[in-house]
Design a binder for these strands. Sequence first.
DNA 1: ACGTCATTTGACCATTTGGTCAAACTTATA
DNA 2: TATAAGTTTGACCAAATGGTCAAATGACGT
Lengths: 228, 228
Amino acid sequence: MDQLYRSRSEAKATDLPPDATPAVRRARPTARAENERALLEAAEQIFAELGFAGATTAAIARKAGVPKANLHYYFATKEALYRAVVERVLKAWLAAAAPFDASDDPSEALAAYIGAKMDLARAMPLASRIWSAEIMRGAPIVQDFLDTTLTDWVAAREKAVVRWISAGKLKPIDARVLFYMIWATTQQYANAAHEMATLNGGRPLDDAAFEQAKRQVIETIVGGVTNF
Amino acid sequence: MDQLYRSRSEAKATDLPPDATPAVRRARPTARAENERALLEAAEQIFAELGFAGATTAAIARKAGVPKANLHYYFATKEALYRAVVERVLKAWLAAAAPFDASDDPSEALAAYIGAKMDLARAMPLASRIWSAEIMRGAPIVQDFLDTTLTDWVAAREKAVVRWISAGKLKPIDARVLFYMIWATTQQYANAAHEMATLNGGRPLDDAAFEQAKRQVIETIVGGVTNF
DNA sequence: ACGTCATTTGACCATTTGGTCAAACTTATA
DNA sequence: TATAAGTTTGACCAAATGGTCAAATGACGT
């Protein structure tokens, strides 16, 4: 799972040591691990809030509690740091995609998938927002992922959809239209959380409201493609 | 229609002359009108591509074909220019919301509304993307619109939805969940156009594919909330 | 022709930003 | 304890950026 895709630009220089660490040089793993964690966490917040261009390495370093020069010790460039953040999101995205294959019944599979994506948006709103922003910008960093892993993922699931339709278990629908609807609808609960809060009297959706939304989204989409 | 909302921060200084122009000072309206148009168009492109922070006034001026100092003659600050762009989007958004009231039949109303929003995303992808980005950032510029016009719009339509549900014309669903689904799904065709193109063999959706998507989105959502 | 007002533009500036560097410091091992 | 490797950090820098300004130019009514 550590070779999701290979970025088109420079082979990432921020990788951990090439392979299994020689067991000898494992000296003081604390500093590196902890600093990278803090920096990635801070970066996620700042990037989500201000976007790639709006984020400054100084702000990220400050939020992480380290001097800016230290940030550049661990991540050579702002783009490398951004790339690292996006790669974490990528893993979460793929993990949340797995439930699609949980069942061969379309209602179950779709419900599981939509539910997982809703939960992802709820649990990792910052990461989700960064992902959307990246896609919206034309995927400057994850283009290669779109070309390979995502294309394959969609192609494979498209077959399942076609099979379901042939078997009369699903209304005829273009698989991609269905996926786009699912992606958009679930992402919305991360992307538009602020708008939702405003329309909710200024308060963010509480767990009950979110769970109800999840149910209704599932019912509507699943019902929309299965009720004959 | 020229008083959509009033921004919270500084009363916009980029307004056209306060009222009906005194008819005398209407001298040479050409330069101002044409320059503002070119600047707004260029700004829309750059803002959509790079976001607010990533956009530079130099790049916008260059694309508009005027010196940077001239840009600042017409729009005092980058934010004022951005605000002007966002206000244009706002009008388009509201115009596309009108079809919701075209019918008192939920299937018809929703189909008209979704269709209009899909068309908007297709016809003005840049503007649509800017709108999404603005919402995603927490609506720094249009917060006041969310608080007033949008809140009212939703409240009013929420009543229609409740009425439809009471009349047994609609499955029970939270009106806002429905709106969020519609907004997200339709926006997707502007926001994720690049992703869609990638999954479409690198070619953007052609008109036929888009029209099919529109039909299927309408069928799925409308079917999802009306089929019993 | 003249005065007035809108417009244009090159030159300029203070600030911010991503990134560098070298010196200091820490830790673990030989 | 000497040495090497990893880590920390303040100082620094070149480039980019939003914005300013004053002088020049153009247009128009009188």
